[in-house]
Design a protein around this nucleic acid. Structure first.
Length: 440
RNA sequence: CGGGGCAUAGCGCAGUCUGGUAGCGCAUCUGCUUUGGGAGCAGAGGGUCGCAGGUUCGAAUCCUGCUGCCCCGACCA
């Protein structure tokens, strides 16, 4: 992509409403634009990051055995009356009426709807286990949205719903998601800690929040730091292996780790002092097992091997990609701007022509741009007629992992400069070697 | 929902107290010079001063009502 033809509205000054680093940088780097309180438009660069994040989430959901579908944002109030949540959910739910005065709502979550889909088709235990997920916009009319997309009213959510014949099956479904979540966040370069959590209005008795430690986090958390030394399950993990998955989950849930709502002072006191961590964290995922809470009132039943009909055991599993983008910036930024991990960077390379109009730099840049693009590498080519300083500042702000600096100074010796955004490390290479290095 | 604050050019702000017909920096456009860490000079464009009423010869400024946004708190898969 040529920057001169792209839409990258970066801001030189920080809008006054932005308090935390991620919000400030998302606005400055042209990732998002606020349209109302807690409601944001995703600009081209931000959308690319969001797409990278959801792509990783999809891969890991699919790997664990979940199946993607897509449900609507608008739901019928009647569906929510079946579960009893239409009255219970409160003002956080955006209630709307259509032209026929029918009561509708903008979905804050989809337990009711997925249960409705399930019961419409599934009759036998032979069709289980089943885990259906989608990635869809949600709306929760938060009392006070803040911190940009960290706590917005409209937000993107990956929500998965598992269906099993009994509790043992549901535990396995829960463990699948547990492991998938560990892998998902690790692939984004984040260290997530599963913590025993309150189940909130969704209900049930088994729940973990996946927390990223960050000083700007909204949750207060306590843990044994030995949890940080555990290794992430590999891509070869067998998700059908019930005992194997349970072993992984047991290992991760043995060290003390809890959010403030579930904090147990006595248990925490038993953790050796040098391993105690009390900090703030950002909740990026939350998994629940809630048994037959919805299947019972909504009549989602299957026939078991014994010929008996019984309500299915369910769980739900959420990740907030739009919040994750903000959380990643909290974790990966410096004075100059964002420092994207390779896996989620909107482009891999910032190609910078330091003297547009100079025959030598123009030609070298065109050669690099074509060669890298031909190799399937995402390149943002800064071909604007700007001074070098402005280009450096832009590149550092948007935080692409690699910068290729092409100027008369280097070309005099037949070299371009390759700079790693994260470390500031620079090497001089020929055009050909730069292409090879970036293709590796 | 309680408490506090803000609303003037794309962004950041001054002007409001003490009423006289709107200004600064950055950004944008044009020209010349410049070109390895957000350039310099010269010129130009851009505003229903959040909205609606009211007071006044005259309102960004005073009065009333409303709306939007931000911060603190409580709340929150």
């Amino acid at each position: 992509m040529r920057l001169s033809r792209y839409f990258l509205p970066i801001l030189r000054e920080t809008p006054k409403e932005a308090e935390i680093a991620s919000h400030r940088l998302m606005l400055r780097a042209g990732l998002i634009r606020q349209e109302s309180a807690g409601i944001y438009a995703w600009l081209p660069l931000g959308l690319r990051v969001l797409d990278k994040v959801t792509a990783i989430i999809r891969e890991e959901q699919d790997r664990s055995g979940a199946v993607e579908l897509l449900m609507p944002t608008i739901q019928s109030a009647d569906l929510w009356r079946e579960s009893g949540r239409y009255e219970a959910y409160g003002k956080e739910m955006l209630r709307i009426k259509d032209r026929h005065d029918r009561e509708m709502l903008f979905g804050p979550t989809n337990e009711e709807m997925i249960t409705e889909v399930f019961r419409g088709y599934v009759r036998s235990y032979k069709d289980l286990p089943l885990n259906l997920y989608h990635i869809q916009w949600k709306f929760r009319d938060e009392i006070r949205p803040r911190f940009g997309t960290m706590r917005s009213r409209e937000f993107l959510m990956k929500d998965a719903y598992s269906f099993d014949l009994d509790e043992a099956g549901a535990r396995h479904a829960y463990n699948r998601m547990f492991v998938a979540y560990l892998r998902t966040f690790a692939r984004m370069g984040l260290t997530s800690i599963p913590m025993r959590a309150d189940t909130g209005p969704i209900g049930g008795n088994l729940s973990h929040e996946f927390i990223i430690l960050a000083s700007t986090g909204e949750s207060e958390v306590h843990c044994d730091k030995s949890v940080l030394d555990l290794s992430i399950p590999t891509a070869e993990t067998d998700f059908e292996d019930v005992a194997g998955l349970q072993k992984i989950v047991d290992a991760w849930t043995t060290p003390y780790a809890a959010t403030s709502e579930m904090h147990d002072e006595a248990a925490f006191a038993a953790v050796p002092a040098d391993r105690k961590v009390s900090a703030r964290g950002i909740e990026v995922g939350h998994i629940f097992y809630f048994g037959t809470k919805y299947s019972e009132p909504m009549d989602a039943k299957v026939t078991g091997p014994d010929g008996q009909e019984r309500p299915v055991h369910m769980g739900s599993y959420g990740i907030g990609p739009s919040r994750l983008v903000a959380a990643m910036i909290e974790a990966f930024h410096d004075e100059q701007g964002i420092v994207w991990p390779d896996e989620v960077a909107p482009f891999k390379v910032a190609l910078m022509n330091l003297k547009v109009g100079d025959a030598g730099t123009d030609e070298a840049c065109e050669t690099l741009y074509r060669a890298l693009t031909a190799r399937g590498i995402d390149v943002l080519y800064d071909d604007r007629d700007e001074r070098p300083g402005a280009k450096f500042a832009t590149a550092d702000l948007i935080g692409l992992p690699w910068q290729v600096l092409v100027g008369p100074k280097g070309l005099a010796e037949g070299k371009v400069e390759l700079k790693r955004r994260a470390t500031g490390e620079r090497v001089l290479l020929s055009v050909e070697d730069a292409v090879l290095r970036l293709s590796a």
